[in-house]
Design a protein around this nucleic acid. Structure first.
Length: 269
DNA sequence: GCCATATGGAAAG
DNA sequence: TTTCCCTATGGCA
């Protein structure tokens, strides 16, 4: 479930599990063999997250740059490493005495240096989870004719927001995702930014995306809890055709920039 | 077994 | 704007 909160949480978990110690880096699948050999056995100094990009820092100014993409997974598992052959397509495995971590299906997994890391970061907009100044994002949205729903997903505008936080933050602000960025008043943009900071911090802490306000939660509304494989309690994401939790209107769905888009046609303008 | 689907992004046209 | 990549899972024959 990789939006920015997943990556920031992962950076913390990796630093806690492996930081300051020599770590085995392997490529069970074989596709990361050359990169793994470069850092295998060196000290993992710490992991950093920027948007949806993960940088695992090793001694010698080497970084393993990981991007999970749409369905990548990276999880830390407490020791001992299960005996027997590694099951499935494990691109990279980190191993220490008391923990290991397996990476599967990433869009990117590569060893880079400081300059390449800086180049990746230079392409990203401010990240709500890093405490960045939102001014560049607000300015860019404020002068763009592109839909606000597309702009929020553009990592060069805001780093770390994915399809769920995009849909949910626009719903909570009452803004139609199709609305051009330049037509959204700046105070509303500031409110959306502050909301993203708060929602995404909560996501880092809980490991899932919950966006429903207390007064609309299942218990408060006398409805059954949401049952969905993404695990969180949300207003709009993947709820097309179901009644809006606030007004009862069936939620709408469409496509924008090749991604699923969800909104309430009554609550969002 | 086959197919559709997914919280992403880069490259190709 | 479309295509492609990477993997796991659930629904359906």
């Amino acid at each position: 479930m990789p939006e920015g909160h997943t990556i920031h949480r992962l950076a913390g978990e990796l630093t806690a599990a492996f930081g300051g110690r020599p770590v085995g880096v392997a490529s069970p699948q074989g596709r990361f063999a050359a990169g793994a050999a470069v850092v295998d056995g060196s000290v993992l100094e710490g992991a950093q997250a920027y948007g949806k990009h993960l940088f695992i820092g090793f001694a010698g100014r080497r970084w393993v740059h990981v991007h999970l993409g749409l369905y990548g997974k990276f999880g830390v598992v407490a020791a001992p490493v299960p005996p027997g052959p590694v099951v499935g397509e494990v691109r990279m495995r980190l191993t220490a005495a008391d923990a290991h971590a397996d990476l599967r299906g990433p869009t990117r997994c590569e060893v880079i240096g400081d300059d390449e890391k800086a180049a990746v970061e230079a392409r990203l907009g401010p990240d709500p989870l890093r405490g960045d100044d939102p001014a560049p994002a607000l300015a860019r949205i404020g002068r763009s004719r592109a839909p606000i729903g597309v702009l929020l997903m553009d990592q060069a505008v805001v780093a770390g927001v994915g399809n769920v936080y995009r849909a949910e933050s626009l719903y909570r602000a009452g803004i139609d995702p199709a609305r051009p960025g330049s037509t959204v008043p700046e105070p509303v943009l500031r409110e959306i930014w502050a909301d993203l900071v708060s929602l995404m911090r909560r996501g880092v802490h809980s490991g899932r995306i919950d966006t429903v306000r207390p007064e609309h939660e299942p218990e408060a509304m006398g409805r059954p809890p949401r049952v969905d494989d993404h695990g969180g309690e949300v207003y709009v994401y993947r709820r097309s055709g179901q009644p809006c939790l606030v007004c009862g209107t069936p939620m709408a769905a469409g496509r924008a920039a090749a991604r699923n888009l969800f909104w309430c046609p009554n609550c969002q303008h």
